[in-house]
Nucleic acid binder design. Structure first.
Lengths: 337, 337
DNA sequence: CGGGGGCGTTTTAACGTTCAAACGGTCTTC
DNA sequence: GAAGACCGTTTGAACGTTAAAACGCCCCCG
């Protein structure tokens, strides 16, 4: 465990010079730099992050509250997201610190504490809710943050965010289905209380109208829970009420799996008789058969933008609200063969 | 952002006394303690972790390498594990720091670097492999670690670990199936190269023998990948070759889902005609129908033991190898109604 | 030849905390 | 009544780093 002092002694320079060699190499004369660099390598020196942070009061750590989920609700792309976030943080020399906190505003003292004790520089929020109180609170406390997901509705100054254009994604799915000959496209959704759901639904509706396809109220079905069973049940209702449906855009992969199951149960072939698309391109999408066409969120890009916004000092010209386009991954459930 | 100095001035004591009030309150006279405590509250003081860590050279941070998975292989219980790990760390005043690293021994420089720069005190490893080189390497470097999962086979001094008795879990599943009248129980497995697979398989074999049930080689089928398709295909082969099979113990929930699908395809009812069990009790197990009987790993306990081993200084009497019992969660796929 | 300006390096001080030793007071003990 | 032990508190130093200022040197210019 070599220290700056030991390196300095070895290279026969002052401590500060070694520090400069690392943080501002242009200040050193080339030969000095080389001598110092050699000593650093020789002694296998690594800067002590704690000492550095104490001096600079920046810890290069970003807090992320690991979501807890109601039973039976999986976050199937969470590991993708975490991996992307981690990678993005690392390319900027930072790391992710995990913690737990109560949901909503009750969790705020935890955020404040972590920041006050200087365990983190700022936070990445996810699971943003319709009237998420966390944004306003953090802004008030002047704690840096960025949110994955817009704050939906009625909140003044929502703060910096990165989000995916769910409406655009669903519209793309509808257009793809239209191109492959589908003409009566249903939408499997969640309850109205979710901003996410309304956004995606609006994309389906807009694209259908644009293409002259029906958007009857009966074509948009809501499931109370994000489970396979609910997806299957809703699909059954849909097909019973309207046998002409030839495609289903589901708001999640899980609901889409439910749709697939119900189709199989009825002796229908997904992708042939009725096309199905999901959302998130979770790992399950590619392991079922027929494999599920799904709308993939660009996790790497999301993570990069999140870290970028969080670590770049606010600049007048640069927006801190970024909407990214998802990608439609086409598989057998909508285009067999 | 109050500091110790400011609190000291406010309480009219020395800095060290305030420090003692927090770290060794028994040393203070009750009235002094109260006065100091009051000042701390009044100024909303929070100790600066960096300064503390610099002095004590302990950062109270535990590194965990976020696993990256081959496409189409989901780690469905990773968020459960992370949540449990986080919670366990927090109850001991620590936190989890995420990072990425190449798999195997190539990732070791990353571990060393994080430790040398004093970003973490130690590591929790997971995804332990048969000849995992990380354990030996870390031990050699004297970097504290604990592994979730045994090092299988031939490694001397495997190092501290917490693991789940997969054999015991599978044996419990077999006994449960036997109790409910099943007499020809098959096992859906992975390739032989996995220590995990061999462990679980051995539990099935042992329990069957104990109960006088057949363990023909044809009853133990191997799937090359952990996908629903592979599980379905293997189940099809199994039933074609041996129509007498009345129960299937699958080594993973994913394979079990494949089995369920194949049964449905054949017009058989899971839980009635053929019983099926999975492993991990992933979120999917409870959202399919019939819901899947599955072997649940005690995540909270696992996490607690991991943190305990990692943070407790080695004591001669106390073992650092702990094997925990999983819990069989019985649902409709093995016991309808 | 004296003053100003770069340049590369060193010096000084500070970040906020804890450890170890020192201190002064009171209470025992012989 | 002096010596020792104990208790609660303070003092001094250190952890390893970086920011800012100071320094000495050389070069240029008037």
């Amino acid at each position: 465990m070599a220290t700056l002092k030991q390196v300095a002694a070895h290279a026969e320079v002052s401590v500060q010079t070694v520090s400069n060699a690392l943080n501002a190499p242009h200040r050193l004369r080339p030969d000095t730099l080389q001598r110092v660099t050699k000593s650093i390598e020789l002694l296998n020196y690594r800067p002590n992050r704690n000492a550095r942070s104490l001096r600079t009061s920046a810890v290069e750590l970003i807090g992320y509250c690991v979501p807890s989920w109601p039973d039976g609700q999986a976050h199937l792309v969470m590991d993708q997201f975490l991996h992307a976030l981690c990678t993005a943080a690392e390319t900027s020399g930072r790391h992710i610190l995990l913690f737990t906190a109560p949901v909503g505003v009750e969790g705020m003292p935890v955020y404040e504490d972590l920041h006050a004790r200087r365990l983190v520089d700022g936070f990445v929020l996810s699971q943003t809710e319709t009237h998420d109180p966390r944004h306003g609170w953090l802004k008030e406390q002047q704690i840096p943050f960025v949110s994955f997901g817009r704050v939906w509705k009625e909140t003044t100054q929502p703060g910096p965010y990165v989000d995916v254009d769910g409406a655009g994604g669903c519209a793309a799915a509808v257009r793809h289905l239209h191109e492959t000959g589908r003409r009566r496209i249903a939408f499997l959704s969640w309850p109205k209380t979710s901003g996410l759901a309304e956004d995606r639904l609006s994309g389906w509706r807009a694209a259908c109208r644009e293409l002259g396809l029906p958007t009857d109220a009966s074509l948009a079905v809501r499931c109370l829970e994000d489970t396979i069973d609910q997806g299957a049940r809703a699909t059954a209702e849909l097909l019973d009420a309207d046998p002409g449906v030839d495609a289903i855009v589901a708001i999640s992969d899980i609901l889409a799996l439910g749709a697939l199951r119900e189709l199989t149960r009825r002796g229908l072939t997904a992708g042939v008789d009725v096309a199905v698309t999901g959302f998130d391109d979770s790992p399950l999408a590619s392991v079922v058969s027929p494999a599920l066409t799904s709308i993939r969120q660009p996790m790497d890009q999301i993570a990069t933008e999140l870290i970028d916004i969080l670590t770049t000092p606010a600049t007048p010209g640069v927006s801190t609200e970024r909407l990214l386009q998802p990608e439609l991954v086409i598989r057998g459930s909508s285009a067999p063969g």
